[in-house]
């Protein structure tokens, strides 16, 4: 139950930050003087989609109690976090200058959130995978060396 709340809410928060952070908090670059959008704008657009997907997976984490389902959700969250990293760093990219706001603040912020998402949900998946109810063997050897207690 505790794991469900923490992991689910964690995904919702991370996803929201990925989706809306570049739009509002750690902003990507404004359009150029001639009104054209720069590359980082499209990274921001892509992150809205990835972020909302992470939010949706997080909501599912909150809804399902089955550990196997949550294990699967955690794994896909870890990979989706990787996708959130891939847009600014490989698939789309950003402005030419390292001193531009997108490269200076927005992308590093996305890096931090993305890495936390990947690592957090990889750890959670590992935890859910390892966690099994204490295995008490059902068969008890009937050879009882000691005399049973009289009642």
């Amino acid at each position: 139950m505790k794991n469900r709340m923490i992991s689910g809410l964690g995904a919702v928060v991370m996803g929201s930050l990925i989706a809306f952070g570049p739009q509002f908090f750690f902003e990507i670059c404004k359009p150029m003087a001639n009104g054209r959008w720069m590359k980082c704008h499209w990274t921001g657009q892509a992150e809205i989609g990835v972020g909302l997907l992470i939010v949706a997976l997080g909501v599912l984490l909150l809804l399902f109690s089955s550990e196997k389902v949550r294990l699967g959700l955690s794994l896909s969250l870890a990979f989706t976090g990787g996708l959130a990293l891939a847009f600014p760093h490989a698939l789309i990219g950003g402005c030419e200058m390292a001193t531009m706001p997108c490269r200076k603040v927005a992308f590093p912020s996305l890096t931090v959130i993305g890495v936390l998402t990947v690592v957090g949900f990889a750890v959670n998946a590992f935890y859910l995978h390892r966690k099994r109810p204490m295995q008490v063997p059902m068969q008890v050897p009937m050879q009882i060396p000691m005399k049973a207690r009289q009642s």
Partner: peptide
């Protein structure tokens, strides 16, 4: 005044 892609001076 502006670089190729971005609106900050260089």
């Amino acid at each position: 005044l502006n670089a190729a892609c971005c609106s900050v001076p260089i």
